[in-house]
Design a protein around this nucleic acid. Structure first.
Lengths: 148, 148
DNA sequence: ACAACTTAGGCAACGCGATTGACTATTAAC
DNA sequence: GTTAATAGTCAATCGCGTTGCCTAAGTTGT
């Protein structure tokens, strides 16, 4: 019947670079979040990390965060609310514009950022241990090229 | 204040291999699905691809598909229903077990699989063009190691 | 000055894709 | 043959995003 197509499909996906990179990427990401969860940051998910990535050191408006993260203001508003409740960030009405809310990193948020930096360094070290320094350098070069 | 933590965080994420691999992976995946969409398979999403990946050439039960894809039977059932409606697969009660439903690839599903094989090959060729044969080989080696 | 427009954020309704729990029908086991 | 396990579905729910509409606040033009 149509079974041959499935065999070709399976064979192709085994050699597909996109597929393989995706699998590796998911595994590495999961490992990092697992490590962060072990250190008490289990409630921080990927969407929340996007908030920290979009946050300026001196605070940022919700609308700006939303635009940078590529999501709606409502979605960002919900993320911020959750982070405020957990003590990661604080919010304050912009004194220069009463409509706007400025989001700022709080103490726990700073702790999380440092923990994330540590987790990232550990993950990179583990990769380098597995690949060796030379191959890790090559990987960095390759990724730079693939990022186009 | 706590702004320094954000600066370190941003700096670290720029050199984080997991982060970089994730970005590359998302871009490559999006490119493949875009290409498939151009060829008329825009309604097939990643979750549906998991169905084809789990499907045996001679048909597979819904429960088995769900277990392989790592989702609930209900979720797989919904995916299969959508694929049946779009003509990609057919379903039939297992003559050997009246409780079970066997899912089989249909003509349009086979066409999709072939299109996916082509898209995969094109994507790989594009990567090889960007990296060169030697570096592509290294990338494959590296990914094999990282897949642990 | 003040009417008219724009902007920031919140509320409500909804969509999508997944989950769990309870149910029916069928098969297997003792 | 009664009892237990299995395949699949229905219903309710949840998480996370969306759009549409609303109010409050700031900006602009005449």
């Amino acid at each position: 019947m149509h079974g041959d197509a499935l065999r070709e499909f399976e064979e192709a996906s085994r050699h597909d670079l996109t597929h393989t990179i995706g699998a590796v990427s998911r595994a590495l990401t999961a490992a990092i979040f697992e490590r962060l969860a072990e250190r008490g940051y289990g409630s921080v998910h990927q969407a929340h990390v996007a908030v920290f990535s979009a946050l300026d050191p001196d605070g940022t408006r919700v609308s700006t965060l939303a635009a940078r993260a590529g999501i709606s203001r409502q979605a960002m508003s919900a993320l911020v609310r959750a982070l405020v409740a957990a003590g990661y960030v604080t919010t304050e009405t912009d004194p220069a514009d009463q409509r706007a809310t400025i989001v700022r990193l709080d103490r726990r948020g700073a702790e999380f950022c440092r923990a994330a930096v540590v987790a990232s360094a550990e993950a990179n070290a583990e990769i380098e241990r597995a690949l060796g320094a030379e191959q890790t350098g090559r990987l960095r070069d390759i990724l730079r090229i693939l990022a186009e």
